[in-house]
Design a protein around this nucleic acid. Sequence first.
DNA 1: TCTTGAACCTCAAGTTACTTGAAGTCCTAT
DNA 2: ATAGGACTTCAAGTAACTTGAGGTTCAAGA
Lengths: 157, 157
Amino acid sequence: MPALKIGDLATRTGTNAPTIRYYEEIGLVPRADRQDGGQRRYGDEDVKRLTLIRRCREFGFPIEQVRSLVTLAEEPGRSCLEARDLAQEHLAAVRAKLRELKALERSLARFVESCETACAGGPGPDCTILGDLATPSSQARTVSEAGQTARRLRARR
Amino acid sequence: MPALKIGDLATRTGTNAPTIRYYEEIGLVPRADRQDGGQRRYGDEDVKRLTLIRRCREFGFPIEQVRSLVTLAEEPGRSCLEARDLAQEHLAAVRAKLRELKALERSLARFVESCETACAGGPGPDCTILGDLATPSSQARTVSEAGQTARRLRARR
DNA sequence: TCTTGAACCTCAAGTTACTTGAAGTCCTAT
DNA sequence: ATAGGACTTCAAGTAACTTGAGGTTCAAGA
């Protein structure tokens, strides 16, 4: 039986302890069991839940949206189709973010590479290649659409 | 010649206008040229810079770190190798995030699919499959490493 | 068994990065 | 020429933590 302290849970999920206490305070995670001295103890389920929460939060999904996703996990009575729809919307948003992040990766990789070749032996005259870093890359619409999606998702509770 | 108003720049980059003004105020973007009436006008370069900034910000890179990356673009005198190193560190962080985001995508896709099959025709008895959503997936260390990387990057400057 | 120091506790205040509101000015289309 | 939508500044508000103060608990070594 794994009885984790708050610090253990923190390191396992890449969170810091005060953040976990904060999540408890705002009711994003249930109140943890306390030991005699009042210290919080956690189990496997807590690790899973917090991992999901942190992943979502790291990618900008607002707390209220994450909340609806995780409470969905703890309400078995809820309509399965409703749950699926919510998860699917979330998934679409994640995929949009994946595209954006890949674009960012390409930009940076291209920049690093051009640095590599252009100024191989020291400072070159025009290492201002950053000019073509972050080309809107036909994503002008995609970016704003992603924004709209996020806003739409946020709107629903 | 494209002379964009702040609203145009905003829609093209998925930002809202007040945020652009805020970025100007804190000096993350240069002060924009003004028209006779005092309204801001923007060009292609501004679209590029703001696109980069927003992409970075959307993925949690703190402003000061983004600042060092974009000022790097406007300081041709700076050491090319230093620039490359900074970009490379940033790139590594982006790739770590990509892995995390893919894990999140898989979790959600798996959940949606199991919803699909399990409760095909309505609410099933145990649509609490969310239990295996967000498995730490051997990423326990990766998550915290990513956190450390972020913190390290934040620390410099 | 005692003790000591790291890790925990609560509560309050501070920080980052925006967002929203008020009150007024500009500009373009009818 | 005028109505209304987009712009202006400045101030205050919000989300999601983070940090600090001041004190308690607990596991490990003497």
